[in-house]
Design a protein around this nucleic acid. Structure first.
Lengths: 205, 205
DNA sequence: ACCTGAACACCGTTCAAGT
DNA sequence: ACCTGAACACCGTTCAAGT
């Protein structure tokens, strides 16, 4: 009765280029998932809803990903992968780059936090942060620990920041979001500076 | 057919003192929930399982708590409430006190992180951390921001730390947990020191 | 005050079978 | 290579009704 009729505009997934509608790849699944995440948030990103968006049965998804956890890890990699991919610059710049990458998708900080806590996903963010510290002349162990500190701060901060979006868009608060965003920028810069300063203080013992 | 037979040793909840078994309070529900959390972890803390442990129907729980989110916020308050309740001491001490409180219950960092991100639960931890900073002679805004930075670091750190317990107890790693714990203590102290030093550096501008 | 019974509207995952 | 169909074993929540 349903489906199969409109091949270029499947439920929820908007194909702008011409492409075959049957025979999805893992990439198609990940992209559709990312779209649901961004448009409707993490609670709405269910395997069943994702299947509907791709016009397949839920069970079909398990050909591409062994489970939801693995799919979320892939999304996490794609989100963090948006950090500037060039040569590593200084710690503050890398931390801001991570924050920007997280802010590009709704609920991204929660996805990345959970994935990271489970020990899944790439270590790109931590690696870049650590390299930035190493470039300042610190040893590998210090770099690893400082990177971890920054990583936890950034993820926690942005998670909290993105959660406020939910309440704001739910109409609970009347604060101008432009002003709220500027305050968040300041608070983020403060926390980051605190850690960076601590590192510098440690350097000149 | 089931239940009602043994009034002093209900499924999962072990009553050491004599007490009526029917007519639960919200406190009973919270305590049973905390026990499931600690014994079986957050994924196993479902409303249905909690109801079974209390020997009631799932719907009965909604007389005590409007929803699961609110129940988790209450658990979060009880977990963080285990922070030393006396006068506020220095920042490092308060941060370690928070970490210890989180380590007292399985998956506690994840529960508290989520609750905090949703804007629920008490602000006891953040308040104590902020007061510790204020006592160092900083203004209220600086204290608020520094407290936020420490809070995110501690929650992220312990969440990650507690997740490793899962894998370790699942038998994935062969590392002596005593040594792993000592390493974690060192890493925690490092991150904390970084932030504390940064604050001191800011003080002597 | 506190709970039951029954339902509603969902989940993630597995697996034989199809093409 | 990729998917269907059907099932399994669950979820959180609501609400009229009972005591």
């Amino acid at each position: 009765m349903e489906g199969l009729l409109n091949g270029v505009h499947l439920n929820g997934v908007h194909y702008t280029h011409t492409m075959a509608s049957r025979g999805h790849s893992a990439d198609d699944v990940a992209r559709a998932a990312l779209r649901i995440l961004d448009d409707h948030g993490l609670p709405d990103l269910t395997m069943r809803r994702l299947a509907t968006a791709l016009d397949v049965q839920p069970s079909a998804l398990y050909w591409h990903f062994p489970n939801k956890q693995t799919l979320l890890a892939e999304l996490s990699n794609r989100i963090v992968g948006r950090m500037a991919s060039g040569p590593v610059s200084d710690l503050s710049h890398e931390a801001r780059s991570l924050r920007d990458a997280l802010l590009a998708y709704r609920d991204a900080a929660e996805v990345v936090s959970s994935t990271l806590a489970m020990g899944l996903g790439s270590s790109l963010a931590r690696d870049r942060l650590a390299e930035a510290v190493t470039a300042q002349g610190f040893d590998a162990d210090t770099a690893r620990r400082a990177a971890t500190t920054v990583l936890h701060f950034v993820l926690g901060f942005v998670w909290h920041e993105q959660q406020r979006f939910h309440y704001d868009s739910a109409g609970v608060r009347g604060v101008d979001s432009g002003i709220a965003g500027a305050l968040a920028d300041d608070d983020f810069a403060f926390g980051l500076d605190l850690i960076a300063q601590g590192l510098r203080a440690r350097g000149r013992v």
